[in-house]
């Protein structure tokens, strides 16, 4: 069956504390932290962007499963912060991982769910036997205007998944999508920062799409919340996925292993995929994982995943760091340092 052959993640080592952002704008840090359930967020280094983070995650995925990159027939990078408006990030990734030139490539954009759309596309190509492996990446240097509520959570990170049908570490049993024209969050052409509809991003956007896609998946597969050992939902903050899980019938214990937003913020296209990686880092053969992404605009992709006996073959720490390794090797920057790292100061 088609599934995940390997995976890799990357999170920059820099962090800014939520209280440093709150103090900058005269807000109460404790109110913000408890409201969002986020303590700190990841910040890219001065020479890191979506392309560099995509390459680092992809290299880890390749190394872990000892994949010959010349067998990768498709590379799709999902992001809303591609370094170029025109010049695909996927081409840079292909060259930097040593892929052949015989692969199809494109950059995807669907707010925070472009990475799961990339996975779906790879599943299709692999299932049709058009390619041996597909490389799907979700990566972002999340954008947020200074002083905007998004600034407390907009982080940076990437996750890469190699999709194939041999030696899979986790079978993708099925997936569903739920998409509508909902203007909850957008960025117009040539604008540096996105805009959003405030509270409108909740019920009609995040919750409607996450819940609908997940219910559709359970109806399609005949599975119910208790059939899953883990659940991962897109993590714009800590509260939204908890509330979505509760309304769908999942408990906090199913959610906790993949809930990493508290430590790295919302990594946009990488968010649910890093959460899935955190679960795969520890899941046992036979365990079942539900993952549902969300991208503003709006849509959700929901996946039923079953871990196989091969999972242990890719978890050698010498071949790649686990998600938890990125949570401890960190350096803090203050607001001025953060503004410098993200080029919020024009020179």
């Amino acid at each position: 069956m088609t599934g995940i052959v390997s995976y890799g993640v990357y999170v920059p080592s820099y962090r800014i504390r939520v209280e440093d952002i709150a103090n900058q704008w005269g807000e109460d840090p404790e109110v913000i932290k408890s409201g969002l359930m986020v303590e700190k967020k990841s910040v890219p280094d001065l020479d890191e962007d979506t392309a560099t983070m995509s390459v680092e995650a992809a290299r880890t995925a390749i190394l872990r499963a000892n994949i010959n990159p010349e067998y990768i027939g498709a590379i799709y990078v999902g992001s809303e912060s591609h370094p170029y408006a025109v010049k695909p990030t996927a081409t840079i990734v292909g060259a930097a991982i040593g892929a052949s030139n015989s692969f199809t490539a494109a950059d995807f954009e669907f707010a925070c769910k472009a990475g799961t759309a990339a996975i779906q596309t790879c599943i299709g190509l692999v299932a049709l036997k058009k390619i041996k492996y597909g490389l799907a990446i979700g990566a972002d240097v999340a954008q947020a205007s200074p002083g905007d509520a998004l600034e407390y959570t907009a982080g940076a990170g990437s996750a890469a998944y190699i999709i194939g049908d041999e030696n899979v570490i986790a079978e993708i049993d099925d997936f569903t999508s739920f998409t509508s024209d909902t203007p909850d969050f957008w960025r117009r052409d040539l604008q540096k920062y996105p805009s959003h509809g405030g509270r409108f991003t909740g019920e009609p956007a995040y919750f409607r799409h996450i819940i609908s896609a997940t219910k559709d998946l359970m109806a399609k597969t005949g599975l119910k919340p208790t059939d899953f050992d883990y659940a991962v939902f897109h993590q714009p903050n800590g509260k939204f996925p908890l509330k979505a899980a509760k309304s769908l019938g999942f408990d906090a214990e199913q959610l906790k292993p993949g809930l990493i937003v508290t430590h790295i913020g919302n990594t946009y296209s990488a968010s649910s995929l890093i959460g899935l990686a955190a679960v795969l880092d520890h899941a046992l053969p036979g365990q079942r994982i539900l993952m549902t992404s969300f991208g503003s605009g709006a849509g959700s992709d929901s996946f039923a995943i079953t871990v196989t006996d091969a999972i242990e073959t890719v978890r050698d720490r010498d071949k790649g760091p686990r998600v938890e390794d990125f949570l401890t090797r960190i350096k803090y920057v203050d607001y001025a340092g953060y503004a410098k790292h993200l080029s919020k100061i024009r020179m």
């Binding site: 280094d45 020479d47 890191e48 962007d49 392309a51 560099t52 390459v55 680092e56 290299r59 370094p83 170029y84 840079i92 930097a96 720490r317 090797r329």
Partner: peptide, 27 residues
């Protein structure tokens, strides 16, 4: 070795990527 930005030709030009190095952390 790690993959990083080496530089860029202003805001309109090409971004140059390539290899830099980081310490190997002792675990």
């Amino acid at each position: 070795a790690v993959f990083r930005k080496l530089g860029e030709e202003g805001e309109r030009g090409i971004i140059y990527y390539g290899t830099k190095f980081v310490p190997i952390l002792q675990t």
